[in-house]
């Protein structure tokens, strides 16, 4: 089926999710880990989209997830809205803020944009911590209802996996379209993109909005799963971890962030202490940037390509270019 052949990344994601579900379904502790890893993976995927494809070094993905989470939680607790409405808000609020931020700042160099997103992330951290009447301040929001039928850990795992696969599917479709190509051109050479007729501002802003929405959806699941949100739930640390694992896995590859997050969550078990996490992530990032800037997937791809002999270049029979 051409649909499957045209979506190799989605296929891999589905296979991965299937394996995970089959492996952990009988163990509640592992299922819980898997759900949280899935949420982290979704956030890392969003960082991969903004950085790997659009070249926007966004340090605000955790903040976007937090915005989505709080939007969903407030919708459920204060407004009594059903989970689906909360999802809509969790997608819309971060997307709107991401779009506005990008539009205001996108003429800036990637470095300046990175600093701006860091500033935004820190601002969101502070507001969530300080605006007690809205967010419950340090006490946070408790008693977030579950999502109807999906009220078991396994149910949440299926939900997270479905969301992950759908996100990869959309991501893949995007990169195979003229919009995805435009994003890549922008990343390398904005003048070239303009000469191709691309409205750089609009395209980049839309990309960041999408990435923010993806992170927001992860926040939505998080809020309903943990049923409690506090100022330490999704913070700048989440943003940092998402970005680091995305880059280490290979930000330019769709599945890079997925691979990076899963690998790191697995390796974390072997760390001598919880506190050493930053040392591990930071050190790995430095090493990867020195020796394999395309990430682990990039490393795998180049060694794979090197080993295969070049196929003779031939004019394709159909119009496939």
């Amino acid at each position: 089926m051409t649909l499957l052949r045209a979506h190799p990344n989605t296929l891999v994601a589905v296979a991965l999710c299937a394996c995970v579900i089959l492996a952990v379904r009988s163990d509640p502790a592992w299922t819980d880990t898997a759900v949280l890893t899935g949420i982290d993976t979704l956030i890392a995927l969003s960082a991969g989209l903004s950085f790997g494809q659009a070249g926007i070094l966004s340090m605000a993905q955790g903040a976007f997830a937090a915005l989505g989470a709080y939007a969903a939680a407030l919708a459920a607790i204060r407004l009594g809205l059903p989970g689906a409405a909360g999802l809509a808000l969790a997608l819309a609020v971060p997307a709107a803020i991401g779009y506005a931020l990008a539009r205001a700042l996108i003429r800036l160099s990637p470095l300046a944009t990175a600093l701006a997103t860091l500033a935004l992330g820190s601002l969101v951290d502070i507001v969530l911590r300080g605006w007690e009447s809205l967010t419950g301040g340090y006490i946070g929001l408790a008693g977030i209802p579950g999502l109807g039928l999906i009220n078991t850990p396994l149910g949440y795992l299926l939900l997270v996996c479905a969301m992950l696969c759908i996100s990869v599917f959309g991501y893949e479709n995007l990169m195979h379209s003229r919009h995805g190509r435009a994003l890549n051109v922008i990343r390398h050479d904005r003048a070239r993109a303009r000469a191709d007729g691309v409205d750089v501002n609009a395209v980049l802003s839309t990309a960041l909005a999408l990435s923010a929405a993806m992170a927001g959806s992860a926040g939505w699941v998080y809020a309903h799963y943990i049923s409690y949100l506090g100022p330490d739930s999704l913070t700048t640390n989440t943003s940092i971890a998402a970005l680091l694992t995305a880059v280490i896995g290979g930000a330019g590859y769709i599945l890079g962030p997925v691979f990076g997050t899963v690998l790191f969550e697995a390796l974390q078990r072997f760390l001598p202490a919880q506190e050493a996490q930053g040392l591990f992530y930071g050190g790995a990032l430095v090493v990867i940037l020195l020796v394999a800037r395309q990430g682990l997937l990039g490393l795998a791809a180049t060694s794979w390509r090197g080993r295969r002999r070049l196929r003779p270049v031939q004019a394709p029979a159909s119009a496939a270019v």
Partner: peptide, 9 residues
């Protein structure tokens, strides 16, 4: 095609 139709395939 717009972004949405591209995303949804």
């Amino acid at each position: 095609s717009n972004w949405l139709s591209a995303l949804a395939g």
